[in-house]
Amino acid sequence: MTIATKQIKPKKATPWLRRGIQIFFFLLVALIATNGALKERGIAIFSFVEGASLHAICPFGGVVSFWQLASAGTLVKKVHESSVALAVIALALSVLFGPVICGWVCPLGSVQEWLGSLGRKIFKKRYNGFVPARLDKALRYLRYIVLAWVSYMTIVSGKLIFQDYDPYYALFNFWTGELALAGAAILVATLLLSLFVERPFCKYACPYGAFQGIFNLFRIFGIKRKASTCIDCKACDRACPMNIEVSTSGTVRDHQCISCLKCTSEDACPVEATVEFAAGKAEKLGAAS
């Protein structure tokens, strides 16, 4: 079966949509965090956006506060109600669509992705393929160890223990003087590694990504590949920033998928209605079309 006999998809309709949303959230978070930090210093602030600490708008604070909230009714220090609300919102989105927060919203993920575009230009096809497959596979479980450690330490200490190691916090606070050396070092390492590996922190170390990734196992909407129309060109595999083998899956249940939709027939897949983001059984996809 050749490509010519398949329904060749029309030109991409929304190539900039996800990137636009990523830029929007990056700027929004930067503005809120900057405003919050300036407000703390008593400096005049932008009146059109509410100033808040970065912790107040990070859903991970709500996740690590869960135990304390459930057992004592209080929040971990520096965490506010808003973190809990955002964690619940993210949870609902994850149950439905998987880690869309990682793929569409998280500013640190976006920055890594943008640097990755540069790396892709430099290394071309070698980009995102430097880490040997076996090592890469093993390293991907490291983030669950990080998640377990952060959760345990936060429960035991009642403090936001990850702040000092968090490159996301470092990214928006490098100018405030509140930057911990470890956090700064991890941020620099993350940014440098992004030139070789796509989303290195997301893949190997992000505890919130690990938490979100669990939902890929049972999310309602997921990446589905219709084997009967697939031409086995592996374009979906090459497009996946998380190196998932979409071409061998029916439904992608990989814990690393970030629901970015890059592999779908709207983007990388050259055949229409073959790789889609949908609810239901994979093989039935496109039956009606």
Partner: peptide, 25 residues
């Protein structure tokens, strides 16, 4: 069978976050 394309998913993500925040407020 429900399919979601990029545009609706983007709208759902943004609306879900800001809608959720509005409800929380």
């Amino acid at each position: 069978m429900i399919r979601i394309k990029t545009l609706p998913l983007g709208i759902i993500v943004v609306a879900g976050i800001f809608g959720g925040i509005s409800i929380a407020k």
